[in-house]
Structures are given as structure tokens and as C-alpha cells.
């Protein structure tokens, strides 16, 4: 692989984190607030179970609107989870109009070799996915973040 610059020196963060002192280290009495610095709710910690396998996606269509998934919503996608029957998944569907899609996974006919992607909107048809069209289940949607503000 070409050593072109930037990542010549990449080093993933070590497991053990060292404390960082943006104010510099000073002698004397420390600020009483420093003890509480770590205590904040971190949504990364709450919503992300597998950091390395987590990716984000933006909903563009309305095919899942009856499941409460709206255009503009932010999805947290976890590729580490084994996709199960009934999961909401992001899939890549090959063929003529290829692209990423969000649907409910239907494995009830898996025995007969059929895997379905089911929309939650009566205006859409379910999609059968086949390995021949190089379609894949890309990841399992763990959270859908929807803004409830009515005005921007």
C-alpha cells in the first residue's frame, strides 16, 4: 500500500486513557469542580454497544413511516448484531435501481430460500432479496433518532 502521508503514523487510541488537563497542571488547591468532570450522560455510551461496528445513516424515504421512521431521521446501525426475523435493517438492494433501503426483515420463509424486506407503508411492495442481485443485509438498526421540534 502506498505510504502517501497522512496515515503513515496512525495509532489507535490505547485502551488506558490518561487524564488530560486543558488548564495545565498547577500546584495549590484544585478546583472543587474537577472531581465531577466525568459525571455527564454520554449518549455514545448509552446508544452504542459495538463502537467498531456502528455506523450512521439518514432516512430519505417514507417506506417505514407507519413504524414511526420518518424522512430526515437519524439511524444508528450496528453491523455486529446477527439480523433476526422482525428486525429493522438497512439493506443494499442490487439490480436496476440499486441503493440502500430500510425495511423490516422477514425470515419466515427462509426455509424455502426466501428472504423478504417488508415496508411499513401500504404504498410500497415488499422486496425479495437474492444473492444473485448482490443484495446484502448491511446492518441492524438499533435506534432511530427523530426530531420532535415542529419548527426547524
Amino acid at each position: 500500500m502506498n505510504n502517501e502521508v497522512e496515515f503513515l503514523t496512525i495509532e489507535v487510541e490505547a485502551e488506558m486513557k490518561l487524564p488530560y488537563y486543558p488548564e495545565g497542571i498547577r500546584a495549590g488547591f484544585p478546583s472543587p469542580a474537577t472531581d465531577y468532570e466525568e459525571e455527564a450522560i454520554d449518549l455514545n455510551r448509552e446508544l452504542i454497544r459495538h463502537r467498531e461496528a456502528t455506523f450512521y445513516a439518514r432516512v430519505k424515504g417514507d417506506s417505514m413511516i407507519d413504524a414511526g421512521i420518518h424522512p430526515g431521521d437519524l439511524l444508528i446501525v450496528d453491523r455486529a448484531l446477527e439480523p433476526k426475523h422482525g428486525d429493522i435493517v438497512v439493506a443494499f438492494v442490487g439490480g436496476e435501481e440499486d441503493g440502500f433501503t430500510i425495511k423490516e426483515l422477514d425470515l419466515s420463509e427462509r426455509e424455502r430460500g426466501r428472504v423478504w424486506l417488508v415496508p411499513h407503508n401500504s404504498a410500497y411492495e415488499r422486496i425479495q432479496i437474492t444473492p444473485e442481485q448482490s443484495s446484502v443485509i448491511w446492518g441492524v438498526v438499533t435506534y432511530c433518532i427523530h426530531s420532535s421540534l415542529r419548527h426547524g
Binding site: F55, Y56, A57, R58, K60, V90, F100, T101
Partner: peptide, 9 residues
């Protein structure tokens, strides 16, 4: 980049 994440239909 949040503006660059994949888009799903």
C-alpha cells in the same frame, strides 16, 4: 461527517 452519512430509502 454527519452530513456525509449514507442515505436510505
Amino acid at each position: 461527517e454527519i452530513r456525509d452519512i449514507i442515505e436510505v430509502l
